[in-house]
Design a protein around this nucleic acid. Sequence first.
DNA 1: GATGAATGAGGCTTCATTCAT
DNA 2: AATGAATGAAGCCTCATTCAT
Lengths: 213, 213, 213, 213
Amino acid sequence: MTESGQPKWRRRAGERPDELLDAALRLFVRNGFAATKVEDIASDAGLSKGAVYRYFSSKEEIFESLVKRALTPIADQTSLMARTSQGDPAMLVKAVLTMIASRLVDPNTVALPRLVLMEAGKFPALATAYRRQVLDKAIGALEAIVRRGVDEGVFRPVDPRLAVRNIVGPVLAHILLGQIFGIDEDTRPTPAAFIESHFDILMNGLSNTGQGD
Amino acid sequence: MTESGQPKWRRRAGERPDELLDAALRLFVRNGFAATKVEDIASDAGLSKGAVYRYFSSKEEIFESLVKRALTPIADQTSLMARTSQGDPAMLVKAVLTMIASRLVDPNTVALPRLVLMEAGKFPALATAYRRQVLDKAIGALEAIVRRGVDEGVFRPVDPRLAVRNIVGPVLAHILLGQIFGIDEDTRPTPAAFIESHFDILMNGLSNTGQGD
Amino acid sequence: MTESGQPKWRRRAGERPDELLDAALRLFVRNGFAATKVEDIASDAGLSKGAVYRYFSSKEEIFESLVKRALTPIADQTSLMARTSQGDPAMLVKAVLTMIASRLVDPNTVALPRLVLMEAGKFPALATAYRRQVLDKAIGALEAIVRRGVDEGVFRPVDPRLAVRNIVGPVLAHILLGQIFGIDEDTRPTPAAFIESHFDILMNGLSNTGQGD
Amino acid sequence: MTESGQPKWRRRAGERPDELLDAALRLFVRNGFAATKVEDIASDAGLSKGAVYRYFSSKEEIFESLVKRALTPIADQTSLMARTSQGDPAMLVKAVLTMIASRLVDPNTVALPRLVLMEAGKFPALATAYRRQVLDKAIGALEAIVRRGVDEGVFRPVDPRLAVRNIVGPVLAHILLGQIFGIDEDTRPTPAAFIESHFDILMNGLSNTGQGD
DNA sequence: GATGAATGAGGCTTCATTCAT
DNA sequence: AATGAATGAAGCCTCATTCAT
């Protein structure tokens, strides 16, 4: 009542859902969907078990809301990227990689694809949504860039569909090795350095033969 | 049943564990560890629930045995690869990629890393083991190859640690897009075609500039 | 009750409990005590969940108040009936049946006994109260009527205790078949027609033998 | 192992379902569906909570199985009754009443209709099934008997549909007063005495007028 | 007085594990 | 060696009740 008493709880209906989703993302990524207890999510968000159900009707709904919430900005940015296909293909590829790199620094952003990946078996609908809204668009955009580069003679005559794996793959590897398996934990390269190297290798190739001889 | 002369069960104690592990891998990959019931593993292996405990003392032990069993040949091959670092670095890289490609055709082999990835949170020891026995060695070997290539002037002066991501990443992307997200399901490129493209791009780079001028 | 003057100490808030009890009766009868949520009662009465506890200290108290409130007028009428045992026994029986019939048209009145019946296990005190205040009195009164009828030679020498079942039972059957099992839903007989038939059969019997011979 | 140890449990898969249904009927009738815990049913049947789910997939399924199991013999007997409509209508009515009386001695049989009645709101399908398989048939049969009696001049010209309530109702009242409200607990009349009285009143009517004049 | 967010005990259900057969 | 009935701990979810606003 007076100074002493801090109330057992506060009314913050507006903020709760997001706080719960934040907590849920954290725990789902760390432990997986099945191994995360609703009570854990609740207490992580500073709530009691029962209160969770005021905002979400089930644990599954939490998961789905979580993915949907995170998907929107990613899908938006992906769409934006897909539309910005003007200009030098090489520069566009670099722009895409830089954009991705800028997102890499946020572990929460990285967490989502991993989560979707982990639970793809149990939530095929979400995996499909993710694929549709993010992967298909992003890959399609990159393919278009590569195809144009090949057509314009800027790129060598590669298969655009396969070349996409060379653009995206190293980024994937970087995330996986670093975030998940904790490789180079102490001396992890900065995202910028990685992107620089990746772009350099991608554009010039590893071999000296083409250039030297 | 007993009339026919066929006993209800056969004494095949020797094969049972492996059959159980096969079934477990299949189910763990599809549904995750937590969502897979011991009874499902048992019936998939043609056994009853209770009999499983004659071979494994717990569900967790099944998982651990599973990963360990699958790890051994991979680790062996990785070690072998690491030691065979003689010869032209470019050809070594291609050999490694070809080796990997040969393994890509077996979905069971692809399943393991994904499983480890999925359950890394609950079984950190296994993730570490996987990292130590497979990733560290394989990456170390590739790094060494790249480093030698750079030293010998065969490769441009790239950072070997980062370049490794360009070698491994596209393979990763190929698996992920194909196996998990089911992209290009109808017209999926063959592993060989992918490796060819990957190696080509990796060695020559995308850009025409180096060659054209 | 006493129509004299409007007591000033009765505030309008005094109507809330009754509205709540109305809502509660409706829902308890439809869904049972356990399956009815306090929040449902509240919203049915146009109130919020928390406000209910300003009027009743618990859900059980709602139930008890409900039965007590409904019991009073029934018990009063029953007592009245019990005291009005003057006159022709046959006419008295008809008067009772007519009185009951007049109440049959109100589903709310029918609802109470059913509710008491349903929850007799959980609220034995209420079932006992109902029995004491309604059944015992009503049955006692009917028994007295029948006994007098037998003594006076107006009725045949039946056992009054058992004959009561023949008076009350058909009414019960009528309610049950109609209200609860929904039999003859389209062509349900009017209460008056039923009472007429019931009284006719009761007084004359089915068989022609008595009359024919 | 030896003489001493009585096992924690026995394998009696065959008997379990019926034992569980027996226990469930007992408890549902006493406390209602909602207030009966699965664990109570289990321990009443000498089982643990979890074992129940080997035989029934949910608490609701227990209830449904229970009603269905009890319905079959009742429905069979009802059908039998419906077909045996030969002979003197009065004697047929008595036969039906006697049959019912014979079932009244078994509290389990009496319990079922009450249970269906109590939970009709939550399990409308079962109430409908009960109505279809028992009430409709029984009432139809009685109506036919009465109608034939009227046609043949054995009964007075009553409305068969309404007269049925006079046949069935007193039985209902007898059950309700006795079994549920515990009236006349000490000096409860035997079923046979009740049926005798009921039939006597039904056939001859209460009043002396018809006979006297 | 009223509201509805928050609590937490309690019930249903699942399933890894044990053990009589 | 194999089976599958039985156990019981644990998790999801509901809802009567409390209490800050």
